[in-house]
Each structure stands twice: as C-alpha cells, then as structure tokens.
Nucleic acid binder design. Structure first.
Lengths: 348, 348
DNA sequence: AGGCGTCTCGCAATCGTTTTCGTAAAAAAA
DNA sequence: TTTTTTTACGAAAACGATTGCGAGACGCCT
C-alpha cells in the first residue's frame, strides 16, 4: 500500500519553476515576485498541497510534537491532565504523543527512549511508582531534551515542575476527618518513592499533630503499585481492620486507591461512614454517585496539564538556555460528601 | 536548546569509513566484511547509536506508528480500548499516537489529516457523534491509508471493522428489565447518526416487541453529544419524567450517559430502582460502587483494541492489496447489580 | 599472464524541504 | 552610456538514512 501526496517538486515541475522558488513562494518570501507567488499559491491550494512534516522535521531538527508519559490514562486524574495538555499543545501547533508506563520502571525507560528517538521536542512526565532511579531521564536532559515534571516529580533534575499542593490537600482532608469526630485515622498511600506520597503523608501527619493526635505508624499503609494491583490494596485494608485499635476513618492518597478501597469496604459490608469514614485524593468524575458519595481532595488536573504544556513550550521555544526554573503549586479543593459525615457514636 | 544525537556520519568519520558502509554494517549486510561490521557495531553500541526515525520515515515512506482517534480518552470504555491498542502495537514495534475528537466533526477532520500528514502507517478510529459525512476518511482511504473502525463504525468504507454485539447487548439489557417486572422502559441514547446508537436502539425495540410491549417513541431520547454536555442529558431526563406515563426504568446507551443519568436522578432524589430502575451500557470500573451499584452491559474493550490493532497491522504489512474485509463482532456481558432489582410494587 | 568471480567497500542518488549563495536581468543612479 | 543597486529566480548543499551500482583487491582457473 502506498500513500502518495503532492510535493514541492510536483509543483515546481508543473509550473516550470525550481523547487527552491516554490518553497520560498509557499513561505511567502520577499525574494519571490508577486505573480509567481500567486501562481504557486493557487496551484498549491487547488492540488491541496500539504508540506511533508517528516521532511520538515528532518530539515529543521524538531518535530513540533511533545511526548507524554503517565502511568495510566485509565484514570480520571491523568486523563484530565492530558486533556489540558492537548488543548494547549493544539493551540500552539504541537501534536501530542501519549504513552503509558503502567507503573513499571522498565516501561518508563523504554517509553522515554522511544519518544526521544522519535525526536519529540519535549517531554511531560509523571513518574511511575516503581521509579527510584532517573538516570534515563537525566541522560535525555543532558542531551538537551526539555522536560517538565508534573504530579509525581523529582528534585534531581533542574527543570520546571508543577504539582498540586499535596501537603495542604492532605492536611485539609485529615483535618476535616478530625473535625467530623474521627480520631483513629488511617492512611493508605502509594509507593513511598513518589513525591506525592511523601507530601501527602506529611500533610496527614501534620494535621494529626496539630490536633494533638499521636501518629501510629501501623495506621500508614504503602501500596507499591498505587492500587493497580487490587490484592495489594485488599491486603493493606485487611491489615488495618485487624489492628487492635481498628481505625474509624481512612484517608486514601490516590485515585485508584480510593475507588478500590471503597469497593473493598463495600464487599466486606462495612458501613461507610458509620464504621469507617473515607476521604479520597481523587479526581473521579463519579465521586458524587458513589455509595456513599465520596468526599475527595480534587486536583486542578486540566489546569495542571495546561500549565505544564505552556512551561514546556516556553522551554522548547526559548532561544537561549533556560537556567531559571519554576516549581508551580496549584491549590486543591476539598469536596465534602457523605463518606465523611460526622461521627455518630462517641469515640470509646 | 539543541538535542544532538550521534549519527551514522559520526560513526563513519570516527572509523574512517563511508556512511554507506556504516549503514550496511548496521543492517548486517552481506556486503560488509566481518571485521568492519564488528568495529561498527561495537562503536555504535558504545556510543549508544540510535537511528533517527525521522530520517528513516522520510526514506522508507513509513513511520511504524499508528494513529488513534477517539472522541474522548476520559472515558473508561475508550481508555480500555486504547490499553488494548497500545499493548499490541508495542509488541509489534509500532508506536501509538492518540488524539481526541471530543465529539466534534471538525476536530475529527483536522486530527485525521494531521495524523495522515505525519505519515502514520494506519488509523484506528471510532467516529465522533457529530460526524455524518466521512469524505475526509474516504480521501485518506483512497490515498491508501489503512484504516480500521471500531465501536462507532461506518459501512461506507470497505475495510476491517470491529464492534461489540450492540444489538444483543441492548436486547439482553432490556429483556432483563422486563424480566425484573418493568414495563415502561425508556431509552436514552446518543446521536442517531452513530452505528452504535441504531444497533442498540434496535436491540431495545426488539426486546420490547418480543415481550409484547408496544414501542412508545416518546420514551426514546437522543443526546446529540453523547452525554458530554450535561444539560442535554438533564433535559432528556426531565422530559421523560414529565410524561403522563412516567417510565419505570431507563436503559442508557453509553458510558457517559449512564453516569450522568444516575447522577441526575440522585440529585432529583428519585429512588433507584424503586421509582426508576437503571441499566447502563458502560465500562465504568466503578459501576459496582455506584449508588446504587449499576447494572451494566460491559463491552470487551481491551480485546476490541487488541483485535483492531492486529487487523490494522495486518493491513499495513500486507504485501498485496487486501480486498477481503472482516467485520468482527465481540460479545458483551451483562453485569447485574442493584440498579435493576426486581420491581416492588405491581404496575398500576 | 589473462580472464573471471568474489569479497569489500565507496560513490552518488534518493526521500521532501529549507536555506545560502550566486547570478542573470531590470531598474536606478552616475 | 556606464556603474551600481535592486529584483527575481535557480543551483546546490544540507538534514540522516538507505541502496543500486561501480570499482579496486584478491584468489583461482585455464
């Protein structure tokens, strides 16, 4: 199967001009006479000429495309971020290549290399939960590939970063549970290598401390795969429930973790929030129709994607090496629903 | 910022060879002596040489990438399909470029043209709900671009297609509602230009006919934007509720439509299924934790993506023009949950 | 020694576009 | 008229990789 389009050469032949003349006419160069220019333009329009972006990329050394690596698009937070990325990229004439690491370090490495060799002009990435070593990204960075981190970021590479205010989001979520009368608040979170995990964990702890509640490490459960493996969350939850001082509330730190925990609690027929209250860190668009509707810390995902893309494009299009890097922090929003209704019976 | 990688030219210079020799050595040509070959291979490995895919695309006329157009990745069905596409594409050495039409005809046109001009080797597409005219795809098809349709397909282009058994899925969903004791079953569906809409509508009607229930056209509501615009669904629902013979059950025909309808019913404080039962055509991974848990027709989305990709790759890699085209139909699965519990009070 | 084949390798064209530079012819200045 | 400037275009070299073809070098046979 062959896909053949009209090229500059065809126009040149048809109009008895040279390719260089046609190229310049198309780009509206001052070197070309008005008559010739018009002739070329008209011919091009009539024959629906489209410059070959592959050839342009080769010549110009960039592809006007940006690569995106997220752990999973099957997740409201990331798909909303991607929507934001796409909207800005489109408006700036970039095209977006989306890949998924599926929380695997290896896939993240191979994806990043694949993208760079496909000569994307820049990379927007949220680290996988398995990733501890970022040499693969350092290599690309040192070769000059502009990178912007979002959500799960690293401090090891000096570049733009954008995150939600994870500390404050987690702090407010926890404080909310406390205000609702809960005291034994557990925290189910992702891999401890993630920046989001430590920030949210810190916010959770601070809220407890500020309320004079001591921190019980047994109440903190890490799920290395961030809820991608259901059994992992299941186990963490089971351990929590078997504790002598069973928690009366759980604060889950990620999208998938929240839905999985809710689902599991319902399977175990544990009434929410009567036996255990729940607050999630989730952008699920269906949190309002969950049973019970889920109180959630919502991130400005779309905006995060938009701003990440703007920062990346400014990096790509900057004429001189950028040395001043920014770390933007976007505010989260606590949406209060039924899963964190005030505690009924007083604490024993 | 400049991104510089090692090229064949660099290797040639370093080893005092010609570029053609290096190129042939890299491709393990028989024309090149064993010694030279090894020298090149070793040097290439040590310096982490990666052929420039842009240059290869230009030269070879293909890019080993496939384009995907869906209306929205922020949707469990499509993101699952994409997961399927990605898994097969990856294993066959193709890379995937995902774009969203966001149910807009114009975006679908511009995306398809952009993808083809970026010389993807093939296209996997599910039509947008606005799309009535597919000349833009016919143009690409006639130029020789392999295309595979999934989910929302068309008969106007002779090529491979893959869908769920929409008729049967809708039939079973409706029959289930009937068996549960409902008689006044409404249907909220997407744009009537979509193949999925007419197939599911037909299944719905057939189930009613087979049960001896007459079809009331007032019970059938089309949402042109497939639930993307909340007000649209809201209005459809409101009209349904104001009917003299208010329906006692609703069968929604798409992912977003189902969640929006459920959400809206809850806002209106209409008990489900007591006042109105609900069955959705949805792949939501959270249907089990909805309130009430949502009975759903689930499509084998991942498998659909995988098979679509296999069909596309076979089209791309076929040496001779393909003339025999296939229309695969995958079976759906009815997951029964609380939203369709048997009717309590007898029909008036 | 001459003829022939084999083995290695380089030359040059090619993909489609951009860009630098050179150069006719026309126009303006002398 | 001669010289200079401007205008309008073409030739050619890139970008990085691939590939058909030609050509030395060597060995083998007659």
């Amino acid at each position: 199967m062959k896909f053949e389009a009209i090229t500059i050469k065809d126009i040149a032949r048809a109009l008895d001009l040279s390719v260089s003349t046609v190229s310049k006419a198309l780009r509206d160069s001052h070197e070309i006479g008005e008559e010739t220019k018009q002739a070329v333009l008209i011919y091009a329009r009539e024959h629906n000429y489209k410059p070959n972006p592959i050839a342009q990329s080769l010549k110009k050394g960039h592809s006007r495309s940006i690569g995106v690596i997220v752990c999973n698009i099957d997740n409201n937070f990331f798909s909303q971020v991607i929507n934001g990325i796409e909207s800005i990229a489109q408006s700036k004439g970039y095209n977006v290549i989306i890949t998924q690491s599926r929380e695997s370090y290896e896939k993240e490495v191979s994806n990043s290399e694949h993208l760079s060799s496909r000569s994307v002009d820049g990379l927007i990435i949220s680290l996988s939960s398995e990733t501890k070593n970022i040499d693969h990204l350092k290599r690309l960075y040192e070769k000059g590939l502009p990178i912007v981190f979002f959500d799960r970021i690293t401090d090891e590479i000096p570049t733009h970063r954008i995150i939600a205010n994870n500390f404050k989001g987690a702090y407010e979520a926890t404080r909310h549970l406390i205000q609702q009368g809960y005291r034994k608040i557990a925290h189910i979170t992702s891999s401890d290598s993630l920046s989001t995990t430590s920030e949210r964990l810190a916010g959770y702890k601070q809220a407890l401390i500020d309320a004079g509640i001591s921190i019980d490490e047994r109440y903190i459960k890490f799920c290395l795969h961030g809820g991608m493996i259901r059994e992992e969350t299941h186990e963490a939850l089971a351990e929590l429930l078997q504790l002598p001082e069973r928690p009366d509330a759980i604060f889950t730190a990620s999208d998938r973790l929240s839905t999985t925990t809710l689902s599991q609690l319902r399977i175990m027929q544990i009434p929410i929030p009567r036996d255990i209250a729940l607050v999630g860190f989730t952008n699920s668009i269906s949190a309002d129709i969950f049973n019970p509707s889920l109180t959630s810390v919502v991130q400005p995902a779309m905006e995060m994607g938009q701003q990440a893309t703007e920062m990346l494009v400014s990096l790509i299009e900057s004429r001189r090496p950028v040395t001043q890097f920014e770390k933007r922090v976007l505010e989260t929003q606590l949406q209060i629903r039924d899963s964190s209704q005030a505690r009924q019976s007083p604490s024993p």
